[in-house]
Write a protein that binds this DNA or RNA. Sequence first.
DNA 1: CGAAGTTGACTGACCCGCCAGATATCGCCG
DNA 2: CGGCGATATCTGGCGGGTCAGTCAACTTCG
Lengths: 197, 197
Amino acid sequence: MPRPSVEVERREQILRAACEVIAEVGLRSMRISDVARRAGTSSGTVHYYFASKREVVHAAFEDNFQRSIDRRRPIFEGEDDPRARLLAFVRSYLPVGEETVRAWRVWMELWSEALREPELQDLNERVYGEWRRFVAAVIRDGQTLGLLREGDAVEYANRLIGMIDGLAIQVLVGSRSMTVERMSAVCEGFLAELEQK
Amino acid sequence: MPRPSVEVERREQILRAACEVIAEVGLRSMRISDVARRAGTSSGTVHYYFASKREVVHAAFEDNFQRSIDRRRPIFEGEDDPRARLLAFVRSYLPVGEETVRAWRVWMELWSEALREPELQDLNERVYGEWRRFVAAVIRDGQTLGLLREGDAVEYANRLIGMIDGLAIQVLVGSRSMTVERMSAVCEGFLAELEQK
DNA sequence: CGAAGTTGACTGACCCGCCAGATATCGCCG
DNA sequence: CGGCGATATCTGGCGGGTCAGTCAACTTCG
């Protein structure tokens, strides 16, 4: 039975389903038929919207990123105290809750795929560019206001973002010594040192 | 023709070949036949030494880790100045040179696989346990000698290791803003702050 | 009616794991 | 010392299963 009303969203449904499947079984085991079933449609329909599996995957990565950004818009566009914004940034990336964990797992799959896919490298570049600029700008704001320690803001941003990624991986692969609480403590310890030292 | 002399090393050859293939084409595209060809043998022989593809992969990950450790033994067992040891540790993990880059790429494949494989989670746990203990111990040494700033050594170790992983990923996926030089600078900046502040 | 959307069966390619047979090595015994 | 199984190692091909992508037929809507 062809679509009754939600025609335009079919593509979105498929991408969301693809992200779920990738997060659950990994890119390696993901099948077009899994995505179709999850989206409540057929494999034929998936191929109607996407020319190839590769295209589904790339679009799913892009979609995963877009929704990550959207969820954090309040943080990016807020006008709070720079210290509070940094804290909110860090907390929003703690792998807690189904949605955040799923986004992280998808992102980890992207990394290994990006090793050989220039298109995904570009996506990564865009994303990290945004983050670095955002974090560095917030840090500079804090420095101007005399709230944060002096020093190269870009370098601090790189340290923080690197730490978040590296620690998140450990949490996600189920390390017993690197729990979410520990990750949170380590990141906030870093932020504490940035504040007036 | 059966092996003339090097019988015992066949297994090792296969594992080394598997690491090379994984690093080059990714776990997703790795074929037993690729590994066999790279090892200069047949797919039958690979199955003679390993019961399944999964077993080849897991053994290859273990092997990759062991060789990483072996290459760094001088650093782990050295008796230098703690500051020099930390610096050597960091530098040895910069993704420079064919061998180190290969090891990193294999490790990245391990991470995404470990999301669903408890056996690989255990391997990861062992590895990071060792590193944390090593780095924390060196930092404590430095503190005792009055060379490094006071503070929770384990937390500093977690920050450093997290940073290394996160930044290495960016370098490996070919970020134009996170080059090896930049990664080196960021890590060494962190070490500089650890020294007497 | 025609266009847009949907379906699921089908196909051709691919690949893991198995296996039957080949080849070398070695111990044993006459 | 030379033949002779026994054993370890190796090989390449095949069977069976899987899956991406195609397609012809179908449904619904305008």
